[in-house]
Amino acid sequence: MATPEGPDRDTPVYVISVAAELAGMHAQTLRQYDRLGLVTPSRTRGGGRRYSARDIDRLREVQALSADGVSLAGIHRILGLETQVEAMRNRLVALTAENQALREALGRSPRVFAAGLSGEVVTLRAGTRPRGPASSSALAVWRPQGWPFGD
């Protein structure tokens, strides 16, 4: 999305000749990387390539890996793994926020339920036991699906 300062890092604004110059490569190299799926720019209605600042960074990363002797197949695998790691980081952030919201919704500790002497369900605070004589030493643990406090 464009801001008053200019386009953001994901806005495709650079034509292939400008992107090649910014990345320090030949335009034909960019076309090859596109065919190989290493860097996939956006396309205009007429089919022209448009590169974003993020695409330029990725081109530079491909160039650095290639200079270090990594094959194009190896670079493709590395970039794919980096994308997976970033997706997992984003998912972790989302799950952590969801977990925190669930903890706050429950209060600081989960609710504990027990069966009373006459079979009714009794809500207890965590760490306490039902009062009265126990007719059984059996223990049943129930966790709802998606329980946020681990298994």
Rank of each mutant, 00 (worst) to 15 (best):
M1L: 09
A2D: 11
A2R: 15
T3V: 11
T3Q: 11
P7L: 01
D8K: 03
D10N: 13
T11Q: 07
T11G: 02
V13P: 01
V15A: 15
I16V: 06
S17V: 04
S17H: 12
E21S: 10
L22K: 12
L22A: 04
L22E: 03
G24N: 08
H26R: 13
H26P: 04
A27K: 15
A27P: 09
Q28F: 04
Q28L: 14
T29N: 01
T29E: 00
L30N: 01
R31W: 04
Q32M: 14
Q32N: 08
Y33S: 03
R35A: 11
L36F: 03
L36Y: 01
G37A: 01
G37F: 00
T40V: 13
P41T: 00
R45P: 13
R45L: 13
G48Q: 15
R50A: 00
Y51D: 01
D55L: 05
D57E: 15
R58P: 06
L59Q: 00
L59N: 03
R60Q: 10
R60V: 05
V62Q: 00
Q63E: 14
Q63H: 14
A64E: 09
S66F: 07
S66D: 12
S66N: 11
D68Y: 11
S71G: 09
G74K: 02
G74A: 00
G74Q: 04
I75D: 03
H76W: 09
R77P: 06
L79C: 03
L81E: 09
L81A: 13
T83C: 07
R89L: 14
R89Y: 05
L92A: 13
V93G: 13
A94G: 10
A94K: 15
L95G: 03
T96A: 08
T96H: 10
A97S: 13
E98K: 08
N99I: 11
N99H: 11
Q100E: 13
Q100M: 09
R103I: 07
A105I: 05
R108S: 08
R108N: 08
V112I: 09
A114D: 04
A115R: 06
A115H: 05
L117R: 12
L117Y: 10
V121T: 15
V122T: 06
L124N: 02
R125S: 12
A126G: 05
T128C: 03
G132A: 05
P133Y: 11
A134L: 12
A134C: 10
S135N: 11
S136W: 10
S136Y: 09
S137G: 14
S137Y: 14
L139C: 09
A140E: 15
V141D: 00
V141E: 00
V141Y: 02
W142L: 15
Q145L: 15
Q145S: 15
G146A: 07
W147I: 07
P148S: 02
F149W: 11
G150K: 06
